[in-house]
């Protein structure tokens, strides 16, 4: 009898845990969008021109219109529309061919129901013909909810090392 009760309790816990784990929520949606953005921005040597165009357009689709981008060291602080974003991502993918983008140590905070703040580390790892390079940037990203979907509405590069 004791064993039976224990098994029932374990089953309930497993079902509850599984439901919580697989149930979609806002944080999971945002994390999925972030992973998709990293994937679309990444390029491989085998990637064809059409795929590159498609990925740039898909990246822009994840962003709101307009989307604010701030990079102090490059004197960038303005709104970009979807076309601008797609064009810039295309240019970046050409410049950083064979480069992998990844987000690490991501923390998501929800100050409002329809707004989230992401703190994350963007890591780039690429290969040129005879060299390998890595780089990393700390980023603050704002995400806003519109008609049930989450869109990136601002990207800020945090420059914590001052020369």
């Amino acid at each position: 009898m004791k064993n039976r009760n224990f098994l029932i309790l374990l089953a309930i816990l497993l079902v509850a845990g599984g439901t919580l784990f697989f149930l979609p929520n806002d944080e999971k949606k945002i994390r999925r969008n972030l992973a998709s953005l990293a994937d679309y921005c990444s390029s491989s040597r085998e990637e064809g021109s059409i795929e590159t165009l498609k990925k740039a357009a898909l990246s822009a689709k994840l962003c709101s219109n307009p989307c604010r981008i701030q990079v102090k060291s490059f004197n960038i602080n303005r709104d970009f529309n979807k076309k601008d974003i797609s064009d810039h991502i295309l240019m970046m993918k050409k410049m950083l061919a064979n480069t992998r983008f990844d987000f690490h140590d991501t923390v998501i905070d929800f100050p409002d129901d329809d707004r989230a703040e992401i703190m994350t580390t963007l890591r780039l790892e690429g290969k040129t013909k005879d060299n390998r390079f890595t780089d990393a940037y700390e980023m603050n990203i704002t995400v806003t909810k519109s008609e049930g979907d989450w869109f990136f509405s601002s990207f800020t590069v945090v420059e914590f090392i001052e020369q």
Binding site: H104, D105, V107, M119, T120, T121, R123, E138, F160, I161
Partner: peptide
Amino acid sequence: TVRFTGRSVML
């Protein structure tokens, strides 16, 4: 080691 947002990637 200097951290970014966490300890996975550091300078």
